[in-house]
Design a protein around this nucleic acid. Structure first.
Lengths: 217, 217, 217, 217
DNA sequence: GATGAATGAGATTTCATTCAT
DNA sequence: CATGAATGAAATCTCATTCAT
């Protein structure tokens, strides 16, 4: 057995894996997570067999795409933290940029099929938690800066974030892109500190979003 | 044959049709539009044969669900207009209420499959246009009232509307419901008139959302 | 849900089920348990879909064939008991007849795949146990009659039985049939009471054959 | 190219070949002849590529395993002839010992696939014929010695032989081993000379077992 | 030579739709 | 009319074999 899951792939295998992931990303974004595996293989320029060698079944592929994606968002979040001068700015940038980055794949996440898969994956949960920690920092910081209303929690922001990542499917790219930017703009305006106190319910925390934890009203 | 396609259905046939529609609505919302027809039939308590007698194929069912749904929203919109004292209030109410009403089925509309179907259906297009007309009235009116920022158009509002209708799938109902209400709240705050002028691009019109018209930057 | 697994099948469905079972029986006997499902369906004169509606997967089909088969042997055993005047005669008849009956399907049981499946099926285990009980009666009785050597147990006889049911595959039918009958004859001669005491080990019991019980030396 | 197909293999190549053969032997015995080539390669501790370099396809591997196996039996038979004092004793020893030797691989031969392959292989046919010649000597000799009933032929004995080589799959090793020894014992008892005349049909000859010759009743 | 990656034909299984009961 | 069985096209997945590293 060559067992060790960390064994680095051979150069060509690596290349194929990456191509498959990239193709899946694009196709999932465009057509949802139910496309025939064959189509993904074709788009990646490999045979189905290769696809199945790398990802034993569709679920594995969905998971891999999701991990890859969360990873990117997390990297963006960290970059925003490092490069922006305030937490509010970092938060705004992240809201804008992640859309940029993905504009897409999360769409796939809308698929109930995909959802079910992802909820049970520890790697994804870990990434998600990491992301929530960073986000928490932004929210606390921006509130301290007096720029973010204090009646929202990390959960609220994550929700906006998530909502936006599901993008208007169909429609020409230009309009879609503009629409998204404007939606974000409106949301950001809604988040500004002077709105304090007008929201129903209580601030949602990161924990509220954990699919495992039972809901606490 | 009694020719007229409008011949009202016999009572039991009517009942079946309604049950199927109701079941499809729930299942599409929960699991997307790709569920096996058999499952829908089972949930409706009828045989597949019956389902197919009422709706010649899956597309017809999707269309019917969509029409039914648009119809409800439109009725809500009209009720809001009649019962609220200002356009702004009607708009707010609609944003809240439609979520209430559907919280759901639009989710299904995320499916690229469904999208394609709906784009080509004249009945749906008609309903959509009716809805946009009403919405247009709200937007213009609320802007005239000085309550809605003037740099948004009907298209922007429709987009927010649409975005919200895709709701956080999974998660306990309570949190989901609260999250949705808070997102709407944040958006509404972002829509208030004092935010004028901070949005990128131009105000989107209802026409911008027409899937057929070529995009105009 | 029409749930009740005992709901009798509709006439046509029943007919199809039987045809499938009969076809599988013949084909498994002739070619082993790995033949394409399509081939079985074709032989049964139905589409693959029908086959899969009746038997959700290959394992289920193998199980059903095995149950059907054990059932026949058990019926034969009971008939032998009723119609023969001594236990020895009943035993001899069963050894001969079961070959007659099956000459075949047990062959399939040689497949390790099939084996694994069958070991875990309670219905099959129950039939097997029933059969062992009847056999036990024969063995005890024939020993009491002074016709069966006393140093063999039910397990030994079952083994002979099982061994013979795996018949010479290939070879023209005539030779195969004759060979089997002669093998049985030789075995029967080896079982006669005057051979007492020349066997190694201890008499095997029915329990020794239970795939679940740990072996006792 | 060093042309001569008999060119002895390099030491490491030889070792690989042997490992593959040994692994195939074990796996075929345990799981039949349909296991994935990859699994055999893994068990042999080599890559599939290596396996395919040594044996151009699955058939070649099956053939090689069969040849190897027949070879062992033939060697055993000759040893028995040399070392035992009578033909009856040699025959008995061979019946016992071959089980010892193989206990197994013949099991694989039950596969119709394997059967078809072997029937057409001249090397195997040659070995088989050699074996039948030796066996014929035993049978004639033991009959002359008055120890083997005269109503059996070489074919009958070969059949018993073959039947026994298909061993009770599943079940703990101990019971399997004991069961086999006891079955052989019973058969041997059935073969003893004093049973003369009770068998149906006619004595089967070695020729009756030739898969090519048309059957003669 | 050895390795394990890639390929693609074929097997398994699902499900939309039709049709006999 | 309602039902659920049958069909077969299409999807998923496996594995024998070839070939680049």
């Amino acid at each position: 057995m060559t067992a060790d899951p960390e064994t680095p792939l051979r150069a060509d295998a690596r290349r194929n894996r990456d191509q498959i992931l990239a193709a899946a990303r694009v196709i999932f974004a465009a057509q949802g997570a139910e496309v025939p595996m064959e189509e993904i293989a074709r788009a990646a320029g490999v045979g189905v067999g290769t696809l199945y060698r790398r990802f034993p079944d569709r679920d594995a592929l969905i998971r891999a795409v999701a991990v890859d994606n969360f990873d990117r968002v997390l990297r963006d979040a960290k970059a925003a933290k490092d490069q922006e001068s305030s937490d509010w700015d970092a938060l705004i940038r992240l809201l804008h940029q992640s859309m940029e980055l993905q504009l897409s794949i999360q769409l796939a996440m809308v698929s109930p099929r995909a959802l079910a898969i992802l909820k049970s994956d520890p790697a994804i949960k870990a990434l998600r938690d990491d992301l929530l920690v960073v986000l928490e920092g932004f929210v606390r910081g921006a509130q301290a800066e007096g720029r973010l209303r204090t009646d929202v929690g990390t959960g609220d922001v994550a929700m906006l974030f998530a909502t936006l990542l599901r993008q208007m499917p169909g429609k020409g790219h230009e309009v879609a892109r503009m629409a998204t930017r404007r939606c974000i703009g409106i949301m950001i305006d809604g988040l500004r500190a002077d709105r304090n106190g007008s929201l129903p319910g209580r601030a949602l925390t990161g924990a509220d979003l954990d699919p495992d934890r039972p809901p606490r009203p």
